[in-house]
């Protein structure tokens, strides 16, 4: 564990708490892409299949359980209690391409051809692009609530900090895995426009609006 990874994990934790707070406070999931949330649920379930076979630490297990449970809870609540508060007509990104693309990528680029490793790799590639339906929806509507922007910033910062963590781990431990590094870079690049608007507008107290 190093400071980059710890802060990254805490940002990830914070992002989910902010999202839950937004939905509860505004009693609405408006502005949230259901498709992105569904992809995150798939990401966590496929990544943490080793939950019962590979013990790392209590911290690791608790975080895994929380990420699976909270993403499942959000997907469930968006389908049930908050179903009428968001508009599927705005959430039109074709996630079949992301699901299929990640499958192809994990079949070509992986370190071991085993059940757990293939699903882990799939989750890494899928996570890199899971935010696209959300970003696509925001580019269509041209704006986002401030709390939603904070959620997305924390979520984007998590993977960005993981990239720093991987560089740091390579320098200090010689630990290197190029698949998550590359996927983390892709994800961070996809966030670039969002980060720009977040820093130039939301951090200065203005609304998140695309030019």
């Amino acid at each position: 564990m190093n400071v980059f990874r710890l802060v990254a994990d805490l940002m990830h934790l914070a992002s989910i708490l902010i999202l839950l707070l937004k939905i509860r406070k505004t009693r609405s999931a408006a502005g949230i892409s259901f498709k992105s949330q569904l992809l995150y649920l798939i990401v966590f379930v496929t990544r943490y299949l080793d939950l019962f076979t590979h013990w790392v630490s209590l911290y690791n297990t608790a975080m895994k359980v929380f990420f699976i449970a909270s993403s499942g809870y959000i997907v469930y609540q968006m389908q049930r209690r908050y179903r009428a508060t968001w508009d599927p007509a705005l959430d039109t990104f074709r996630i079949e391409f992301l699901l299929g693309g990640a499958a192809v990528m994990s079949l070509i680029f992986h370190t071991k051809f085993t059940f757990l490793e293939l699903f882990w790799t799939y989750s890494i590639w899928l996570e890199a692009v899971a935010i696209l339906p959300q970003l696509f929806q925001m580019s269509r509507t041209g704006e986002a609530e401030t709390i939603t922007a904070h959620y997305l910033f924390a979520l984007g910062a998590y993977r960005g900090l993981y990239v720093v963590n991987w560089i740091y781990r390579y320098a200090t431990e010689g630990y290197w895995e190029w698949i998550p590094f590359l996927a983390g870079m892709v994800q961070t690049v996809l966030y670039a426009d969002f980060f720009y608007v977040y820093f130039s507008r939301v951090m200065r107290g203005k609304k998140f609006e695309l030019p």
Binding site: D50, H54, V56, N60, F67, E117, E177, W178, P180
Partner: peptide
């Protein structure tokens, strides 16, 4: 490069 013996990250 270290052999992945199981992933310790989230």
């Amino acid at each position: 490069a270290a052999e992945p013996v199981g992933h310790d990250e989230l």
